[in-house]
Amino acid sequence: MVFMAATSFAVARLRNLFGVVMLTGIFSLMSAVLYVVLDAVDVAFTEAAVGAGIATVLMLGTLALTTSEERVSEAGKPVWALALVVATGLVLIYGTFDMPPFGDPYAPIHHHVAPRYLEKSGQEIGLPNVVTSVLASYRGYDTLGEVFVIFTAACGVLLIIGRPKRGRRRTLRMKVGEMRHGMRQNVILRVVSKLLIPFILVFALYVQWHGDFGPGGGFQAGIIFASGFILYALIFDVDTSRMVVPSGVTRLVLALGVMLYTGVGVAGLLRGGNFLNYSVLAEEQTAGQHLGILLIEFGVGLTVAAAMITIFYTFARQEH
């Protein structure tokens, strides 16, 4: 954790934005490690994939399109900002004094709502991974919202920087292309990645379907799946990878993913339960829950993968 603090200070100081982004990636990786230590394996998985993977790629893409050096501002460091931050920090520290100490098993959070998840989800949902049970069923509605957030972001990116005017296209592709020249020479890289990508995709599928039992699920799977494509695009060519998955298809998948999730919810509704009630989907409660979770996780996976690919492509097609 101290390492993280050091990293963040370095981020604050460093002017080279590439460096900053790299450090942020490292920061994410470290926090992922920390999550594992703190028993949050699912979160760690996601953080590693999102924070260290996607976010970093996107930032690098942006930097490639803008500038990589932060200008030194001639004005002195804003004192008010520092004061504000220190004040906020002190208020927060003041607030910690009545917090239960770290890891205290008697803290209220471990005694009010959470025990039920741990005690009953086994019978009610029938899945060993409590995080998945809570995520997909007890608080499935939050997750629905979350899927829509990512959907919003993908559509938003399309709307903001999608479809550049045709004709003048000196795009990131060229940047990537330059990199590619370097990379293409590197036969090892190409061969390894060619070998690797199928595995990444298979791994993604594994994560997708295994999420009920171990760590993993739609999010992680979707992101890993998207990473596979992004890697392919980086090493080979954006356009080639576009041929594999045309943008129309990604959009369709994007829409279908969220609709699948919502549709499962509506199905519950039509079968006499409330929205997102999976129990009514099958004769038996756990079977219904199982089916529902499987489907919505698939929906999540589809949406996340499609969203990530859409966002990446849209960034990649920008002009410089």
């Binding site: 999102v50 996107l58 930032m59 959070i109 995080v131 608080r139 979350e146 972001a153 938003g156 990116v157």
Partner: peptide, 20 residues
């Protein structure tokens, strides 16, 4: 497990904001 769930959600929200 509950905070884990919340943070899974929040991470995704975060990356969405970043992308935008």
């Amino acid at each position: 497990p509950l905070p884990h769930v919340l943070i899974l959600t929040a991470i995704v929200v975060g990356v969405a904001t970043t992308a935008l």
